[in-house]
Amino acid sequence: MLCLPTFVGGVPIHMICRASEKVAGGKLVRLELEHDGSRILRAKITGDFFLHPEDALGEMEKSLAGMQINASEPEFSSTLAKVVQSESAELVGFSPEILAKLVVNAIATCEAGENK
């Protein structure tokens, strides 16, 4: 996990946090989040997983943007699962639950001040 602050005039304004997991029996998933200390600004999900239809990933990333960073793991998971359902998406090698865990881990790493 990695967490990097971005600076304007020496003052951190956004935090960029990363987390990754090799899912047991599944695939590698990497998550990069940017937040402003209150809300998630953007999310990027990468990895060697499969997702059909592929375009659903962009919708999953968008669904995280705007969420409070102190939302719970089940809330992140539920938000992502709704997108999966609405897009009739099939995830192979990862799941909304795994992604939710990564979101929480990434944010927690930032709060712990790791890698600043």
Binding site: T46, D48, L51
Partner: peptide, 9 residues
């Protein structure tokens, strides 16, 4: 690389 992978990574 896979469709969802990061080129730089």
């Amino acid at each position: 690389i896979g469709y969802f992978q990061s080129l730089a990574d």
